[in-house]
Design a protein around this nucleic acid. Sequence first.
DNA 1: GTCTATATGTAGACTGCCTATAGGTAGGCA
DNA 2: TGCCTACCTATAGGCAGTCTACATATAGAC
Lengths: 111, 111
Amino acid sequence: MNPDALRGHMDALLLSVLEREPLHGYAIIEALQERSGGALNVPTGTVYPALRRLERIGYLASEWATVGGRKRRTYRLTDSGRKQLEGERSAWAEFASVIGGVLRPGVRQPG
Amino acid sequence: MNPDALRGHMDALLLSVLEREPLHGYAIIEALQERSGGALNVPTGTVYPALRRLERIGYLASEWATVGGRKRRTYRLTDSGRKQLEGERSAWAEFASVIGGVLRPGVRQPG
DNA sequence: GTCTATATGTAGACTGCCTATAGGTAGGCA
DNA sequence: TGCCTACCTATAGGCAGTCTACATATAGAC
């Protein structure tokens, strides 16, 4: 998977995996891998800054927890984040439709 | 359309509009607009450098022409570019499938 | 004691899309 | 004659998000 291709879609992915339940960063990375059938291997250097950014914007909120002697910062969607996720979903649908349309082989222009 | 979303897909778009016939830069921009129903407004500062990059790689070749007193640099797909376009198409299909899959609401993990 | 898995985080590089700007021709219009 | 718009190519520098590499730490297996 070309890394640049993810640009601008990372927020949507992160918000989406947090839709059902709060997760901590490490678990988010694993969830992305599982849900993508192994195609998405997002490095920690991408995820952690992105999560902080999304929290700063207000789409996520986080709490610290200690589980089995290990500290975790668990992120959950805010109401604002839930709305944003809806927007990201429709934006993705439009994006995929537009790009897919231009890329479709043998396209004829109207006229 | 979020500009960042286009990252890593611009090459595919450019190669795709050049598949049927050679075009010059300005015409490529118009073709992208038409084919996308107006959604794709790619600035010249994006297209011209990208075309040169693709030519440097060997996916495109160009010739100068003068039409109606105006100079045009017309780009066409090379054989290498045609192969690359195939690769870009399958890469897009996989990308769209992966992202779409993760973004799909109410996804359940196996198990 | 070493290794792996778990877990968070930062610094700096990279890259490619963007804005802004530059230069030029052709043709319509006042 | 001057002004405006459409056409046409091109570069410089900014910007932002992803990446690589590194730092730090606990738990448990071996």
